[in-house]
Design a binder for these strands. Structure first.
Lengths: 119, 119
DNA sequence: GCGCCTAGTATACATAAGGGTACTGCACAC
DNA sequence: GTGTGCAGTACCCTTATGTATACTAGGCGC
């Protein structure tokens, strides 16, 4: 990494402009973001369905991380103006391009669970 | 993911026992951990050299994340009893097995930087 | 024998990120 | 009119991370 891009106005990663790993981490740096992307890989999903698929996440956090992913162009948010409200989240092209990263995580985790099962 | 492993005593990931992605995230969930592993991939490295290679990290954080990675069996810590002190960090076999994950992140980041350069 | 060097460790304090729960407004079922 | 589902928002609290400083122990210059 070059030492020139040491700017990080909003707490983003120093060096995300030039360091590939930091650039990727600047997108995936939320606790739930990789899991959200992982759950959206098969196809679009509504808010509460996503919440059910991600045990442990709170509404507040899920909203916040979805908004961040939307701002980064990873997730698309489609609002149907009906009652009850219907909001559909899906991966953008850029989001789908993260598939190999999530897949690598999945493969490593599968191997870990197989070799070192817990309780 | 099954709903049974909802235990997470110390703030670890719910479901890390059975969900592969969560299992991987339970190891990589620190802001600097992926970068530390990335920097250690080429070979062993001393503390201050690591610090120099990771602009933006503080001594305190680097120490803490190295200890966490050590506890997870990702990083080996070798202390030479000399003056001045000499401590060498390196990846364990388990740590090296994370190479594909870091590589996927690197590739994605490279592509991003190429397609969407910043300033 | 005093101050400065290395390679860290330890402490204190501030801010950022994560988390829990209650609450909204509207429609539908009962 | 009570309960349920949807897609959030508001409020408050706990971890995680960031910053700064002081400390270890021996060796070196003077």
């Amino acid at each position: 990494m070059s030492a020139e891009d040491t700017d990080t106005p909003g707490g983003a990663f120093i060096g995300y402009k030039t360091c590939p790993v930091r650039r990727t981490l600047s997108i995936l740096n939320g606790k739930w973001k990789p899991l959200i992307i992982y759950e959206l890989l098969p196809g679009p999903c509504r808010f509460n369905e996503l919440k059910r698929r991600l045990p442990g996440v709170s509404q507040r956090l899920l909203t916040a991380q979805l908004r961040a992913l939307e701002a980064d162009g990873i997730v698309d948010r489609k609002v149907m103006e009906v009652v009850p409200p219907h909001v559909e989240y899906s991966l953008s092209e850029k989001g789908r391009s993260l598939h190999p990263v999530l897949q690598a995580m999945e493969i490593w985790g599968e191997n870990e669970i197989k070799n070192y099962p817990i309780s």
